[in-house]
Computed example of a mutant assay.
Amino acid sequence: MKEVIAIVRMNRMNQTKKALVEAGITSMTAKEVLGRGKGIVDFSLLKGAEKGFEEAITQLGDSSRLIPKRMISIVVPDGLVEKVVSTLIRVNRTGKSGDGRIFVLQAKDSIRIRTGERGEAVLDEV
């Protein structure tokens, strides 16, 4: 069992939900987050800005701003990981900086609170 965490653009969320449902993945959690990727940061400007030099702050501009994104968490059986990942990539890849990230983590257990069921029995199965 794996947890797939994806950070995607806000404007791609509806297409992402639709594509996941069409792929048979109906269970997910999403929340609004703020973040940024590597980007291009001139560290000499950053040091100058930290020291309070107005010129450095002006040149740095908005490059250190945090960008609104959506974080999606999906726990699936091992056999569905590639389907989820390929769906996320297909829908969210624009080829431009800021398309997002996907992380795949091991999930130790899953429990349905209402019934007490455990393990993969509580997950989507396609």
Rank of each mutant, 00 (worst) to 15 (best):
I5R: 15
L20V: 05
I57Y: 06
G24K: 01
Q106G: 11
V4C: 06
R36A: 01
M10Q: 15
K38A: 04
G116F: 11
V85W: 08
K51H: 08
K38S: 09
V85Y: 05
V41T: 09
G39W: 06
V8K: 01
L45C: 01
T115I: 06
A19F: 04
E120V: 03
D62I: 14
N14H: 14
E22M: 11
E117I: 11
I74A: 00
T115D: 03
V33H: 08
Q106N: 09
K17A: 00
I7E: 00
E3P: 10
Q15Y: 13
T115Q: 05
R93P: 11
G116V: 09
D78P: 06
V126S: 10
E82H: 13
G61D: 03
D42L: 08
V33C: 11
G48D: 06
I72V: 05
G119F: 02
R93K: 14
S63E: 02
E50C: 07
A107G: 04
T94V: 01
K18P: 11
P68K: 13
D99R: 02
G37T: 03
V33L: 13
G100A: 04
A107V: 12
G95R: 00
E50N: 12
A56K: 13
V84Y: 10
R70D: 04
I5W: 13
S44T: 12
I74N: 00
G98H: 12
R118K: 03
Q106W: 04
T87K: 10
V33S: 04
N14A: 07
N14M: 07
N11Y: 14
E55F: 09
E50F: 08
G61M: 14
L46V: 07
I102M: 04
G116K: 02
D42M: 04
L88W: 02
T94I: 01
